[in-house]
Design a protein around this nucleic acid. Sequence first.
DNA 1: CGCCTAGTTGACCAGGTTCAACAACGGTGG
DNA 2: CCACCGTTGTTGAACCTGGTCAACTAGGCG
Lengths: 247, 247
Amino acid sequence: MSVAIQTELTPAIRKLENAHPLTDGERRAIGSLPFSVRMLEAHQDIVRERDRPSQCCIILSGWAYRYKLLEEGKRQIVSLHVAGDLPDLHGVHLGAMDHALATLTGCRVAFIPHDSIRSLMSDSPSLAARLWRETLVDGSIYREWITCIGRRSAYCRIAHLFCEMYLKLSAVGLADDFRYDFAATQSDLGDALGLSNVHVNRVLQELRGQNLISLQGRKLVIRDWPELTKVAQFNPNYLYLQEPVAA
Amino acid sequence: MSVAIQTELTPAIRKLENAHPLTDGERRAIGSLPFSVRMLEAHQDIVRERDRPSQCCIILSGWAYRYKLLEEGKRQIVSLHVAGDLPDLHGVHLGAMDHALATLTGCRVAFIPHDSIRSLMSDSPSLAARLWRETLVDGSIYREWITCIGRRSAYCRIAHLFCEMYLKLSAVGLADDFRYDFAATQSDLGDALGLSNVHVNRVLQELRGQNLISLQGRKLVIRDWPELTKVAQFNPNYLYLQEPVAA
DNA sequence: CGCCTAGTTGACCAGGTTCAACAACGGTGG
DNA sequence: CCACCGTTGTTGAACCTGGTCAACTAGGCG
């Protein structure tokens, strides 16, 4: 494996090592996977609903998201993904996609054939378990999103997402000092949280007014992490990260 | 394995065979698991948030649900489970529970130690894949729920859930002829769909008024399946069942 | 400069919530 | 057998969070 791709895989490796470090054998197995790396433009579908993909992907850089389209043209974003994520690993075991996967920003993406993943998993049950775990953490995040959308106010939801993405990005070294690049637009935010873009705009102003965050261009700064987590009712347990951020 | 437990496991087996039939070896492996069967009362926690369970369970009969509690005492139900489901399989790979699991009705439940599951999975990678698949289908259902709660009206959401549960129950032989026992109260429904019990009540009246359903006691009858699926915007793909119901 | 996307604002509206009271029902004990 | 009780379902009225529509502003880029 070239040094370049090795570096690019760092976030993914870091995630897989969340439970405990990889063995040399596991590293070798990952290194021998046939990656095909591509740079994708922003706002491009990677996989569409009803597709039957024969490969899955790793996000190397940029943000991606999964979404469903409704009859009246509405969109619901069901998850956000950053470097290190394997957003369509489920394709290995499920058939036709029940949703679509797309880039939010320009993304570097590594594709791996399902067959290679399958033989990796049968060769190394421990790696299979690690990959399974990743999909289970996805499930846990879904549960939290259901709870947010179902029972929390717009103010709380938006604050919550800022906290979530901060920890997700921190875990792969892409955020620290309570700031990061927040790639989604206000419309994207609305589609992720079940809100209109107009209302997102107003709530953002309120969050700024309370001096909890600032958000200009794509730069998000969390000005008061303790207070933000409080109004967000944010409890990081559901992310199943090993090293929760200090307050 | 006794004939009794074998019969009780039928729904679970049927679910695992959704992709393709079990081999004799796989059946034997399942049969040799050490089940401990218990009858639980309605409205009882099976696992609580923050617990670190050392076993997981199979619902043999009755309805169960997973939920999260919020600070102000609100509740969000994140999934409903019926006979054949393994609602806390994720515990094998994740640590402390991020949510709770409880019975909605009286339930017969089989408990299996995680260790037994783990050795089952390392002995039979194909069974491991089947179990993994179950958790992925759960994930797919979460995505649909996020979409429902985020972007669909109350009317649509309730209709959607009635369709979903009909197919889930049909798949394990617990519903046919467009009728089944709907175990949840109106408050439960509200907590699952992000609505108040009062509004659920009103929407139910409208669904009855449109002659789409009738619901008395715990008996749900779907009076007009084509129309109900239409107003629900219901597309069964996300359930990943092999034999979709005829319209 | 012109175009396009993203962000912002105001006015109005509606879906859904809250509160409070009451009805229906089933189970329990006297 | 009936009185009692808790749970579930039902109704009305007032309210409010957040949606819709439409117009306008601010940036970024070729």
